[in-house]
């Protein structure tokens, strides 16, 4: 009966534990972290010396 406009509920510790110990979650964290690690390695700041939309 609660409306969607109410604040997001929170997961209980038990719900979190169920998720965190699941295989699908472990695979997701493993794969995503590898992808993110590659993205983190890119250090070239393509915006350097240019700012679009920010204050002059």
């Amino acid at each position: 009966e609660s409306t969607k406009t109410e604040e997001l509920r929170e997961l209980s510790d038990e719900e979190r534990k169920t998720i965190v110990t699941s295989h699908t979650f472990a695979n997701f964290v493993d794969t995503s972290s590898k992808i993110v690690e590659r993205a983190l390695h890119e250090t070239y700041d393509f915006m350097k010396d240019y700012t679009i939309g920010a204050e002059v």
């Binding site: 997701f28 794969t31 993110v36 700012t51 920010a54």
Partner: peptide, 21 residues
Amino acid sequence: KKHELMISPDKEYTMIVVQNH
């Protein structure tokens, strides 16, 4: 200006990583 958010989306989960570049 301050960060780059790297967001890895999945059917069931989303990972957000906040990096100070």
